[in-house]
Write a protein that binds this DNA or RNA. Structure first.
Lengths: 266, 266
DNA sequence: CGAAAACTTGATGGGGCTCAATGCTTGTGG
DNA sequence: CCACAAGCATTGAGCCCCATCAAGTTTTCG
């Protein structure tokens, strides 16, 4: 089910050949797609909104900010003006310890909302970097807050999205605080699998856009440990790993592995 | 500076001797204190609101739900109707893995808002348990959302509070993902210190309301490791530990310890 | 006061980190 | 288009931090 999640952003940015509609600032390029016609409207911010409400939301969204692989969308400390939604591509967020240690706090794919960490202080708490060429919609936050006051459904949806980010974080705390290396990696793969599936891609075959080191940082492991765990999974026949291509052969066995160690130890 | 943070909630609930104003449900007991007179108004939800706005907020808050030590405020899976604010006492939140492992996701003290994890699904994602006798204000969420649509300042403040929870979570991910045991404990103590200070209590002397095991769960360590780290800190003269009483003798040395290991290892 | 819970401390072992070498992939410029 | 460099990934060997197991002490609370 679903098409393979190859996601070569260069290859499928058909939008780039269509002439631009208008440009309100040098940095922000508008492309013709609107929230109404966007394929992500059931996943992204418009989810649950009626046609008229989506139109209003569309009115404040600046569309298509293009990023090349390695580009920063935001740097920690940058003043916050907007939320961002991923249209195509993949990004990572990471926080930096004073002494230079990096902790990846999340990987983001299409339809996901970024920048909510920055509301508290007005400055971005993380670096956000494109893992491949990506396109981003920008949503000026002041406009958005204003609009959400007149559209209760939008307000509620936004609160749910922020709340979901919080529960996601709790899940990662559980992972980091009480799982062993292979459980962490299994959890990670199944999470990706599920998110690809929700976007109509294959849940069993996909391409990782991040390095082993970035996976390790996210999971609180060293890159060698990640690599070894992949190899172990492959030897056990659970998955096939070929560089960044993953095929999950036995999702249920992978799932069983998530809680395995805990039951053996006490 | 500040009074010692003994926080015997039983002892300072002067409010209980004053007659109750009204009671809208059997479970919810109203006490005469209002948001307007509450000593936490600069820390809690009313922060930044004008007198008239605080009055409106006060109108929807159900005051003083009393909890005894060990009581559940919410259980994971419970339907979510309200947010909660801690008036007195201390609580913990924890998520349960299917196999029974517990991960403490937070400790909560007066003025802090709980329940934001439950907005996404309409069900509480964590167990919330009183670590000592505590008092809670209940804020029906539907009322709150409605009110925040008419009070932009309240809306903005709520978004900031949710955002702050997200950045707090990122900090814990950093801690769990890339700090060693002693760094974690030092970070934890300094965080408590700062939160006590913000509430007018001593930043150098306070009483832990949680067990070593709960600290360990929060920090991704075993209770023995927590105990040993406390002993080590005490031997090094950084702190004095007497059961649950903590005195921080050299905050700056504790702070230096937070980034120490990283600089030694490359 | 007695039992249960919480805490401390010691001994031991293992999971994952570190260091190191090698192979592979990707991107760039001649 | 190929060659080379740089980044990325794999794998091995050894070690260390922290978990585990165990025992004894202190504190809490009914």
């Amino acid at each position: 089910m679903g098409t393979p999640a190859t996601l070569h952003s260069r290859a499928d940015t058909r939008a780039t050949v269509i002439p631009m509609r208008r440009a309100e600032s040098a940095n922000v390029v508008h492309c013709p797609t609107s929230c109404q016609t966007c394929s992500l409207r059931e996943i992204c911010l418009p989810a649950g909104l009626g046609p008229h409400e989506v139109e209003q939301l569309n009115g404040i969204v600046h569309r298509k900010r293009a990023l090349k692989r390695g580009d920063y969308l935001r740097r920690a400390g940058n003043p916050m003006q907007s939320l961002y939604a991923v249209r195509t591509g993949h990004l990572k967020s990471s926080v930096l310890h004073e002494d230079g240690r990096e902790q990846v706090t999340g990987f983001h794919m299409m339809g996901e909302l970024l920048g909510m960490d920055a509301i508290a202080t007005g400055k971005h708490a993380c670096d956000v970097i494109a893992l491949e060429d990506s396109e981003i919609c920008e949503i000026p936050f002041a406009d958005f807050e204003r609009l959400s006051r007149t559209l209760p459904v939008l307000q509620q949806h936004f609160h749910r999205v922020m709340s979901r980010e919080i529960t996601r974080d709790y899940g990662i705390m559980l992972l980091l605080g009480s799982m062993r290396a292979e459980e962490r990696l299994a959890t990670f793969l199944l999470n990706l699998s599920q998110r690809f599936a929700a976007r109509g891609y294959s849940s069993t075959q996909f391409v990782l856009r991040m390095t082993r080191e970035e996976i390790g940082s996210y999971l609180g492991l060293k890159l060698e440990t990640v690599s070894r765990a992949f190899s172990r999974f492959q030897n056990d026949g659970l998955i096939t790993v070929k560089n960044k291509s993953i095929e999950i052969k036995f999702p249920e066995r992978l799932r069983a592995l998530m809680g395995e160690c805990a039951s053996t130890r006490q």
